[in-house]
Amino acid sequence: MKLEIRNVTKKYGKFCAVKNFSYEFTEGVYGLLGPNGAGKTTIIRILADVLNPTDGSVMLNGEDIKDMDYRYRNLIGYLPQDFGVYKNFTAHRFLMYIAALKGLSKTESQKRIEELLEITNLKEYSNVKTGTFSGGMKRRLGIAQALLNDPKILIMDEPTAGLDPKERVRFRNLLSEISKDKIVILSTHIVSDIEYISKEIVLIKKGEILKTGSSESLTNEIKGKVWKVLTDENGLKTIEERFTVGNIFRNGNKIETRIISENRPDDSAEAEIPTMEDVFLYYFDELSE
């Protein structure tokens, strides 16, 4: 299975949200990583067939998804960034409704919904109105609905927004379990969501691809550019002026900073092993959450 984005451009008036974007997905987990406003959501929406590109096309196995129409949508599961629910629906009714829209039969849906409520830990809330759900519960309901039709292509926009750390871990494990024969595309601005599970990470900035690669190759590329510097309150100011600074740990008067620099910033600096957090900092000049 091969999903290609070919020369996709999306303009809103004069603003170009995505510029001549091309990429290819095969089975496995992909992470679209970039700061807010980088154009991730636009790309995700185009892939989910809810937004038409201004130019270019998306092809699945050589067939334009516009031609495939419902046959394409039949294959996808989608979790939008702003996932809303009908507030006066129970979780069960909402899932039944979405299952029906996905073309599942009633008996099929019943079974699948049972399973998914179990997986997403929502079983006891099956008959509770979704209007009373917390952000995390809604997100989990969103993950459940995306999986209803056992999609071959799973597209999720900021799937972990609102989940607590424990739920995030569960989500990552779930994804690794189900991603074997699927294309999974996640967009996030949180490095840890995708660092260990994705086959390939696509760094996006201002609607264009900045860099792609596995997290290993991306971190390897900035080897020797991440440093640990010990300083004090006065020194910190000059460091912040001169370098891109990552995490700062305060320990009494001592301050330990992690900085990005092409060259050794000063004699006392120690080279650090780069992480994906550093990659994010290096390319986007800001901290990932």
Partner: peptide, 8 residues
């Protein structure tokens, strides 16, 4: 002709 080719 497409840029796709140029990139990918």
């Amino acid at each position: 002709k497409s840029n796709y080719y140029k990139n990918v």
